[in-house]
Design a protein around this nucleic acid. Sequence first.
RNA 1: GGGCGCGUAGCUCAAUUGGCAGAGCAACUGACUCUUAAUCAGUAGGUUGAAGGUUCGAUUCCUUCCGCGCUCACCA
Length: 518
Amino acid sequence: MPLDENIYELRREKLKQIEALGQRTYPNRYDYTHTVAQILGTYSEKTAQQLEESRVNVRVAGRIMANRLMGKAGFAHLQQDGQRLQIYVKKDAVGEKGFELYRLLDLGDHIGVSGYLFRTRTGELTVHVEEITFLSKDLLPLPEKWHGLTDVELRYRQRYVDLVMNPEVREVFLKRSKLVQSFRRTMDAHGFIEVETPMMQPIAGGAVAKPFKTHHNALDVDLFLRIAPELYLKRLTVGGLDRVYEINRNFRNEGLGWRWNPEFTMLEFYQAYADFRDIMDLTQKLIEQAAQDVNGTKKSKWGEEEIDWSGSNWRRMTMREAIIQFWPEKAGAKPEMSEFGSHDSVRALVARFNAAGKHMAYDPSEPAGKTIAGLFEAVAEEHLLQPTIVYEFPVAVSPLSKKKAEEPDWVERFEIFAGQMELSNGFSELNDPEDQRERFEEQLKERARGDEEAHQMDEDYIRALSYGMPPTGGCGVGVDRLAMLLTNSQTIRDVILFPLLRPEKAGGSDQAENPEPK
RNA sequence: GGGCGCGUAGCUCAAUUGGCAGAGCAACUGACUCUUAAUCAGUAGGUUGAAGGUUCGAUUCCUUCCGCGCUCACCA
């Protein structure tokens, strides 16, 4: 019999003995007077003498994370909400039965204790226990106390154990929660309303990505998990909801990596009567505020580096300026603005770049704008550590943005970069239905050329625009990636509670996963 | 999908040139009424990821497979 199963059986046996002592094995509730955090917060300054003079009685619950039994007395630590409080159990104080119960407890069990606070000789605030109430059994052993759970895969698969064992993991997700709260606060304060739009869509639009496909039986139609909420949110601005936002998941059927999970969370918002510059300003403020709210400071550690989210530290440059500025020396003279103008000159830039020992994938039949965008990613992205707004994108990669009045090959679009990652993408929304139809048609040509991710025609969206959408600016902000940056997490899996993993093999040899008795 | 690396007790890790698979913690038994990685004495726990090969002998070398991590390409 594997040890785990052995322990499981053994602990079930203990559970029966606990029941025999008159305890309920899985009681429904426990009346406590304090949480662990409240006790630590309120009494950690009190001296031993003060606690002795005016006795503080408490009832408090938690999970046993350490136990040091010494014959007829013992110390244990209760963990609740990530904080630990020591308890002292003495046979004289809890009686025969109480002490028998204490001896039957295992690491990981939940108990409630009532007693009074005191300080031990070493000065630690401790509950002098007078009564123990059994609350719930841990039948499977927790990981070793000193090293804890370090196996990366197990940490993701059994996040519940990870959360019990690793306080810093708990901290990351508390910060993520603060980040989302901060976003909501900022959006609400600016008069935005939160909405929810379809996640199952007949046409997966609003972004460039491969969708997941699913099927609805009753209607007998194929549907796609959304790759973006964009087109639905903009339909709402047509409908007169002038400021809307949504915080929710998008799904993209693509590779996994340190900054990619197939489902990821975006804040996306639209504001009527605003253009991309207004949206830039708002998004910058939104992120600056989030950094402050999450960490209490606008500076955050990122590996060996530090990112400063203060407004004064943000840079802005056009995509073409960024390519020029970060052009590698090895690739010769920096490009001239005019060299972005024609298919041939762009192609020559790629040739120069690749000749310098770099490698950039390039399809000569693709539109020049697409190549420029690729060039930007290859040349500049790795240099964008501090928050940077890169604006003016090629129309060829921006089927939903409004063109720049004086340069119709370029659109009023921006992306925010930090920590070498794209964090955010926004633009002046294209609201001319005829232009939109032409853009979709261009995308269909790209599709025909073999680009599976090119945008599809969406007739209803064009119909919506045909009813008149006010001038509008919009933006999406990647919540997971910002959470990474604000918690110094080097992989997206560390900011997603249950990241996508290959499913575990069912049953069989891995008894640790199937401890149920036969 | 390509490249690199890893897989040994429940957990964290050892094992010399290919030569009897080990330690700490967790578990179990016992001692101990102020400990905090409690201590002390003892016990148990292994198909070394799987299959095959080389060898007198494989945790160690070779092949294949499985799983995981990192990385590159596509993607935000």
